[in-house]
Design a protein around this nucleic acid. Structure first.
Lengths: 212, 212, 212, 212
DNA sequence: AATGAATGAGGATTCATTCAT
DNA sequence: GATGAATGAATCCTCATTCAT
């Protein structure tokens, strides 16, 4: 949830190619550290993705997380798993917003929009589609997309009178807004997302992360 | 400390990178083939991009076009130039549709939508944005995007009463539809694009390429 | 205009550059081998430079050292670093000779001359110059050249009466001798170097490596 | 004879990768142009070598000369031949200086020194040596070197009293001065060359090209 | 005789993935 | 369980050399 706009250079110059380690051999902190490492990797992946784009070297993620490459592979079999873990967090917050006391359709949309604004990786997710033949991220992405749909639909006025009540229109609209925010800087993304929802005639609550 | 003499020129003078097999040297069809090769490269690039994504190896494009790698580099200094050449064709057809006798807003939108359906690369173009800092493709993409905007705006009812009359709404809508079609198969894309325009309350003419 | 869908991530997620042959994976000798590899690379670089010249392919150096290309890049970010590492050894020996008990100007010159005879790469170093704008090797080379100068000057008779006492004459003379030995075979180089020092009227001790 | 100091970038940015030629098809000026082309190539080679170094692309030389690549190959079978042709000019001027009315040893040395200052390529020549195993430029270079020696020796005071009278000392001294000027900028080269001759105790006439 | 497009080998460099320690 | 060195396939790009026109 803490994502910066994606700068255009692929490699940020810093912390690349560390000098060959001479002596240091970091302590093995035992099984307790495993969970901590996994979490650190997800945070690092979010940052690195934001800074360098979705095809940043996995080694950069491990380095940022302060762990060896092997640890990354222990927790995530491949890049898709890393990416899914990052997206999982976004989706979970949207679900939590939907499950919260007094949640409304507009409110959940606000949280969703916030994530769209924050996370370049998340944007792509919502473009996922069952007809996509490629495995990997996409397979997960479809499942995640369904969960977002569930969270939203739970609050869709059930009289069928809503503009997005039709079966496919809900996620189509989300994909459209997602398309609207693809490309620009984060600041611009919020403006565009709101303009897009407005063009769709949909009311959106305050754009903010979930636990307010 | 066991070193033999070394001359001071950089390259050992003769025998500098000579082809190993002196045999088979595919026919050189002379300068006349240059234009044909360039065209073949653009076609190949469109196909390869579609099949393998926007970062398919340039060598795959050259191979598909039936030319050596060098030819690709002769015609296009970098990947951005290749991509631009592909997009250029799409844009030109939209412009031609707009310039044609009896063109209408809905008609041009139909042609645009057809290209959106056909060309995955074209989809990305419409996400281009002035605030995008990426050079290369994006720089061209912005210019191309402007041309699409011009083609559309030329037919926008000028009484200001149109739903997309506001300054930014036109290309925002295009970006939204573009987002709606990102991901799925080509067949699905047409359905989605039409549904998206419908959600935006915009009428679209027949989805078809330009010269009918 | 004949394009299939394309997902928006850069790399198709999974199966990203996977090795083709799953077999034969040469033993990984663990981090302990790192230092050994680095040393092997320096030795290999010295040999390859001597045999093939200063722009021999880096891959040849890696091959000679018996390591993969990646290892070379791990230890040395670029060609300049490789070359510097090679030269560093020569310079260090000259410095040690200068620091040794009972060192004399003629004695250090003898060691220097031995390195000039042995190492074609070292010869080039001494042509480095502050006015040289080339970055990379040259930047290091200048520093290394200064170290050689320091080693020699430490033993230059300080009454100012020496023929090379003038500020620039010392390294100019070294460059001249270096020029004299550029080109011929190693055997010839020693003869030339001594003749060159003689022409300069400078006495040289036994031509030999440092630790005798 | 008009050489500038070698800049450090390999590719000067300008006139690289010209846009693909569309229509133009330069006239064939017949056999008369052949000699003119050859001369233009030598001039171009000298310039390009000076600007980009001795391993500049041959295509750059052809381009600078305003001819096609094929013409370069018609006149020179390989890079060595091009380089030799460039050096040939330098040597010829030294020979002419030696053959001129009233020539003196110091005078010829002055002309030689001027060429050393001007031409980075020429500097390398004088490092050539019979023991060099490599063919190509070096083969020619040895012959050229002999011609320079002849030109100088013709004016060496024949009473054997000269410091460089011994068989090998003459060209050894030239190689030494050549070594002294390797590296720095052209301005610096003249200063160094003169300082080097001074260290050798040899008097040098005015540093200038031959036909004054 | 000239042109310059085309070929394609080869070198530089990166990074996913494995594995000895 | 963790480390990070090593591997090497794959991609980019350059340029010597040929040859149809």
């Amino acid at each position: 949830m803490t994502q910066q706009p994606v700068p255009d250079q692929r490699r940020p110059a810093s912390d690349q190619r560390r000098p060959v380690n001479e002596e240091r051999r970091p302590a093995n902190h035992g099984p307790k550290a495993a969970a901590r490492n996994r979490a650190a990797l997800v945070v690092a992946a979010r940052e690195i993705y934001a800074e360098q784009g979705l095809d940043a070297p996995l080694s950069a993620i491990a380095r940022r997380a302060g762990v060896g490459q092997g640890v990354l592979y222990r927790h995530f079999p491949d890049r898709a798993a890393v990416t899914s873990a990052v997206l999982e967090e976004n989706v979970r917050e949207v679900e939590q917003a939907a499950a919260a006391e007094g949640a409304s359709f507009a409110g959940v949309l606000g949280v969703l929009t916030w994530h769209l604004k924050e996370s370049a990786a998340f944007i792509g997710l919502l473009h996922a589609d069952g007809s996509d033949r490629r495995s990997g991220v996409r397979a997960h992405a479809l499942a995640l997309s369904r969960r977002v749909e569930g969270a939203l639909r739970a609050h869709l006025p059930d009289d069928g009178g809503h503009r997005l009540a039709a079966a496919d229109d809900l996620m189509l609209a989300v994909a459209m807004v997602s398309g609207a925010v693809t490309g620009p800087s984060r600041e611009e993304r919020e403006r565009r997302a709101l303009a897009a929802w407005r063009l769709l005639g949909v009311e959106v609550g305050p754009v903010r992360p979930f636990p307010g």
